[in-house]
Design a protein around this nucleic acid. Structure first.
Length: 704
RNA sequence: GCACCCUUAGCUCAGUUGGUAGAGCAACCCCUUUACACGGGGAAGGUCGGGGGUUCGAGUCCCUCAGGGUGCACCA
């Protein structure tokens, strides 16, 4: 018996060494598994692409959970003899990364991005991303992730960029990408447009003011944003509202807070007669709904009164004032003019930018959009329908199932997707202009072409991830072998951002699904059930956990009792419990090896009396049905309370049992390996008789 | 407003197609027994949120109420 067993199990002394040995073996690469005879060349494939962590990030518990779950499935499938590919990569995370670097530059040099210029800022960002990349990659490895690093991808590298340009052009040619002047969600803090999904609504107390535009204006109007009223072009009332019927169609002139305005009264069914005064002041340039109502009544969109810095752009006393300040000025003016009727307290949900926290200012802007309600040529269906169909038909299965309903609900409410961003880091829009001419896809030759200044929403490139990582649009063997992928495992917060976009992009581009199963894990919360966040200071650092208890213990704690789609709580006690379990297994191995001078490998029938075949059957069945949380617990329970507490104890009295212990241990190591890869592999390395050099590629016990 | 989820032992949660409840942790008692005190043995603990229904039988299916949470939409 190896002397190492005389001391308690020490994960910190073991895990790094084991991971290095795995990496050196090359067995994370399915081609290498075939070459070394660990996997049959004609074996079926199993593939997962890693949801790419942001290059700016540090490993957090969410990552650790993702890795624990995915690695469990991957290791299980590999042991079952599949040609198993788990493909790693990182995400450039455009807005997030640029804003980190911008802040840094501002702090250290006092310069803005415009002081640096596009080229210089990009240089800084790329340097930062490269260094940050190495950090996160090394952290992924510490959790034991059996990712094939030889295939690593980056959302912004040349191969992925080519995929982006290719898909953009195809969508443009299909008439699904268009450039249009529309109201966008403008983030004055981040100085960019964002999509509807990047908005977070915050409940805030606000005032609802009731006023008239002028003394002779017949209808009182209620608003929470009086400062925007200098941009009003109309007032909308409900067609059936008897109070205002006589004024519909009439037009009025007024000078509102120094600004001349022209108001037409229109009737529109969108207006709720019970809210406020039942009359809406229409500000088409600064409200999505008003824009739409204005469209229906042929009112102008042109009256822009707020700029990108959320400052007023009208002449008179409001000029150059911030919107919040302007609000007070307008209210004072209304009061002094006798136009003010009343103010009431109300609660407003204010749209803020998820990344920067800036209050969204709706502005009309020329942007690029993906049209979701238009028929896709040759498919006879809209993009929306293409997103719904594979989930409805069961071609894509979402776990837990009820999330499918949420998915449908979201798609039904989906509007055109704004894909252009006014930041510099990211995939530049592959469109070039020269006078009236336009070129799309690849850079045109000839003089005088200027590329669009904007970049693409980062989710545009993420949407291609399952196939861009496999080399598409090149005709690669990997693409043919591993696509569609088998499993997409991710968190509930990016189902719409990412999962839905992947389905959209893959259905459009390839006419197929990106993955067969979507497994949604819950969010990791602290012991009190609170979200882990920087501001609360309750973040648990996986690297710290690993240093104290080992990656195996952290992984096990994240898997056991963690049902898909349900948030989980993690506590130090739970992790500590599994670090003790690792030590328990260590001592079981010690005992077994001490009592197995000439180990005999028994087949499953010979071990029938120990209930092990039943365990294998249940564990296999649980993993196959995405119940890893049960499988891991059953293995734990068997090892500790059946194998150690009963069988080992019996064997001290009954010598006939002793010669079976070795075989039981072998099976237990295999069943536990997907969940606790390090300690099981470390013990395996000291097993004198076994079916593979590495437990990682040994055969999974046969369930029958 | 629309939709979805949750409510089971002190705490955190399982309970896969309906067959009279399980785990981990904590708490309690005992044991330093030669694999392990990062251990072992034992006992305790639940009218499965309330009410109603379907069924021979419901934590599990249906209805309803209450509390908690999430997503989406709206917010003049």
């Amino acid at each position: 018996m190896d002397e190492k067993f005389l001391k308690p199990y020490d994960p910190t002394a073991t895990e790094g060494r084991i991971y290095a040995a795995w990496e050196k073996s090359g067995l994370f690469n399915p081609d290498e598994c075939v070459k070394q005879g660990a996997t049959p060349a004609d074996a079926p494939t199993y593939s997962i692409v890693l949801p790419p962590p942001n290059v700016t990030g540090r490993l957090h518990m969410g990552h650790a959970l993702m890795l624990a779950v995915e690695d469990s499935f991957v290791r299980y499938k590999r042991m079952r003899g599949f040609r198993t590919l788990w493909l790693p990569g990182t995400d450039h995370a455009a807005i997030a990364t640029q804003s980190v670097v911008e802040k840094q530059v501002k702090k250290e040099e006092g310069k803005s991005r415009h002081d640096l210029g596009r080229e210089e800022l990009l240089k800084r960002i790329e340097a930062f991303a490269a260094q940050s990349h190495d950090t996160i990659v090394n952290q992924l490895k510490t959790m034991g992730a059996s990712l094939d690093w030889s295939r690593e991808a980056f959302t912004l590298d040349e191969k992925r960029s080519r995929a982006v340009r290719t898909v953009f052009k195809r969508m443009y040619d299909a008439g699904l990408i268009y450039r249009g002047m529309r109201i966008v969600n403008w983030d004055p803090k981040g100085q960019t447009t964002i999509s509807d999904d990047e908005i977070v609504y915050e409940e805030r107390a606000a005032k609802l003011y009731t006023f008239r535009y002028s003394k002779d204006f017949p209808i009182p109007v209620a608003t929470t944003r009086p400062e925007t009223k200098v941009g009003d072009v109309g007032v909308a009332v409900h067609p059936d509202d008897a109070r205002y019927k006589e004024f519909v169609g009439k037009e009025y002139d007024a000078v509102f807070c120094d600004v001349p305005i022209h108001i037409k009264v229109v009737a529109d069914k969108e207006v709720d007669p019970a809210f406020g005064t039942g009359a809406v002041g229409l500000t088409p340039a600064h409200s999505k709904i008003d824009w739409e109502i204005a469209d229906r009544h042929e009112l102008s969109h042109e009256s822009v009164v707020i700029n990108e810095y959320a400052k007023m752009t009208v002449s008179g006393r409001l000029n150059g004032k911030k919107t919040a300040e302007a609000r007070g000025i307008v209210v004072d003016w209304l009061k002094s003019e006798g136009l003010f009727e009343k103010e009431e307290d109300t609660v407003q949900s204010v749209a803020t930018a998820e990344r920067t926290g800036g209050v969204i200012e709706p502005l009309p802007k020329l942007q690029w959009w993906v049209e979701v309600d238009k028929e896709v040529p040759g498919r006879g269906k809209t993009l929306k329908e293409l997103m719904l169909e594979p989930v409805r038909s069961g071609a894509i299965k979402i776990i837990p199932e009820h999330i499918e309903k949420t998915y449908y609900h979201w798609i039904e409410n989906l509007r055109d997707w704004c894909i252009s961003r006014q930041i510099w880091y990211g995939h530049r829009i592959p469109v070039w202009y020269r006078g009236e001419e336009i070129a799309v896809g690849e850079a045109p030759t000839g003089d005088g072409w200027a590329q669009d200044e904007d970049t693409l929403d980062t989710w545009f490139s993420s949407g291609l991830w399952t196939f861009s990582t496999l080399g598409w649009p090149e005709d690669t063997e990997d693409f043919h072998t591993y696509h569609p992928t088998d499993l997409l495992e991710t968190g509930p917060d990016i189902i719409f951002f990412w999962v839905a976009r992947m389905i959209l992009m893959t259905e459009f581009t390839l006419g197929t699904i990106p993955f067969k199963t979507v497994y949604i894990h819950g969010l990791v919360r602290d012991a009190q059930g609170r979200k882990m966040s920087k501001s609360l200071g309750n973040n648990m650092d996986p690297l710290d956990v690993k240093a104290r208890f080992g990656a195996d213990a952290a992984r096990m704690a994240l898997i056991v009792g963690n049902t898909p789609g349900t948030d989980m709580r993690i506590s130090e006690d739970k992790i500590k419990g599994y670090s003790r379990f690792a030590n328990k297994l260590w001592n079981i191995a010690r005992f077994v090896l001490e009592h197995s001078d000439t180990p005999m490998i028994r087949d499953m029938q010979e071990l029938e009396r120990y209930g092990i075949s039943q365990l294998v059957k249940e564990v296999t069945d649980d993993i196959e049905n995405y119940r890893a949380y049960l499988a891991a617990e059953k293995v734990y329970h068997y090892i500790w309370h059946t194998f150690a507490d009963k069988i080992l104890e019996e064997s001290k009295k009954d010598e006939t049992i002793q010669s079976d212990l070795y075989s039981i241990l072998l099976v237990c190591l295999k069943l536990l390996h997907p969940f606790m890869p390090f300690v099981t592999e470390e013990i395996w390395q000291s097993m004198p008789a076994k079916d593979a050099r590495f437990l990682m590629v040994s055969r999974w016990p046969q369930p029958e």
